[in-house]
Simulated assay, not measured.
Amino acid sequence: MRTGVIGASGYTGGDLVRLLLFHPKAELTCVTSRQFSGKYLSSVHPNLRGITQIKFEEFNVNKISDRCDYIFLGVPHRASMNIVPQLLETGVKIIDLSADFRIKNLETYEYYYGKHEHPELLGKSIYGISELHKEEIKKANLVSCPGCLASSAILGAAPMIGSGAVDLERIVIDSKVGSSASGREFSLSTHHPERANIVRPYKATNHRHTAEMEQELSEVAGKQVKIAFSAHAVDMVRGILTTIHLFLEKELTEKEVWGLFREFYNDEPFIRIIKQKTGIYRLPDPKVIVGTNYCDIGFEIDEHMPRVVVLSALDNLIKGAAGQAVQCMNLMEGIDETTGLKFPGIHPY
């Protein structure tokens, strides 16, 4: 598979090219960046020194599409909506990591992101959570990968949403996320003296990833789901820990909750259900999934106020972005979805 990454200079772009360079079935043929055009990839991503001699180049739809079977878009929100139509005309398969085609409802998209220039394409993209849309992704020409916070929330909540036991209008979700989720561009809030040693609420209400969560979980439930979502920045570079409060309308035993998760995820290769009796990692912890394409999910049952507290941990740059994108490419190509992605994290980190 000949692959290219448009907008490869950011943190997600760096992980994408790293994964593609070591993918046994892929060849990285081009990477683009307006800012770094003509410079070696390793000048921006120093971890790739001695690995590749490829250079950044300017984006040109014809030159790039001629050399690619798959193109990944790592450009900012609202930039890809004008690139995707050009690329679709060339016949290449597209995996977009921006938010431009995630939301199917135009009114909802424009509430969170502003005017959409190509609303006719909103219904033509497949939402790129492999565990929910595997068969559709296999046949897709345009996949829109989820946001990292949405990934952790949807994967954690989905197994119980369709059970009939959960109050679908009172779902509370809270995420703690590392600094790399802010991207490569810096600001005062990401400046080290301001960012270190903090647990900072940065979007306590009206977070735009709420739209993705409600869209996907409503599809699982078969009816409208309402979510109260809050996000916090914490003092780590990579990783998300999402806490999901699901209030019960009927009693569930621990064995029944286990059964819901096991049945829903069955043999999904990148979902691990974590609930140990002893040890310091009894429940999901982002520390142990850094650098991996795994999502670790666990739960506790609260008998005092009938609810299940689900915890979901993933690496925001891998399972929350680049790894999920490569997993989608594998499915689109018809090869084992774990190809190039089956590796453990680094511990301790």
Rank of each mutant, 00 (worst) to 15 (best):
D296S: 09
S80Y: 03
G10M: 01
L311N: 12
D285G: 01
P24Q: 06
S312C: 11
V172Q: 12
L283F: 13
L341T: 08
E185K: 14
A79F: 10
G259Y: 06
T29F: 05
K176G: 06
K275S: 11
L331K: 04
P76H: 09
A150Q: 03
V5E: 01
G123C: 05
R2F: 10
A322I: 04
N293D: 12
G340F: 01
T205W: 12
N206W: 09
I271L: 09
R195D: 12
A196I: 14
F247P: 01
D302L: 01
K176T: 10
L341Q: 05
P348V: 07
R102I: 10
H133V: 00
L246N: 08
V288I: 15
I289A: 00
L19W: 01
L252V: 15
R78L: 14
C148T: 04
G279T: 11
I335K: 07
Y127H: 12
S187A: 14
G183H: 10
D167N: 14
T338S: 15
K134H: 13
R18E: 15
G178V: 07
S9M: 04
D296M: 07
K63A: 10
L97R: 02
H245W: 12
E131H: 06
Y112K: 04
G10R: 00
V177D: 06
K134I: 04
S163C: 11
D296Y: 11
A181V: 03
T108L: 09
F101A: 03
C68P: 03
V177C: 15
N60I: 02
E303G: 04
F229E: 07
S125K: 05
G291Y: 06
D296R: 00
L311I: 00
L314W: 04
T242Q: 05
K255W: 03
E58F: 06
H347P: 00
G4R: 01
V84P: 06
T205V: 15
V309Q: 11
Q35R: 15
E333V: 04
I244W: 08
M332I: 05
S144M: 03
D66M: 13
V220T: 09
Q324F: 00
T12M: 03
L311P: 00
I244V: 14
R262I: 15
I346G: 00
N316Y: 00
T12K: 01
L188T: 12
E185P: 00
G4Y: 00
G91C: 10
A26C: 13
D302H: 07
I274P: 00
E89I: 02
V166G: 08
A313M: 01
V172S: 13
L19C: 06
E300L: 13
H207I: 12
C30L: 14
P348D: 04
A196Y: 11
N197F: 15
D69G: 05
I273S: 06
P119F: 09
S230N: 10
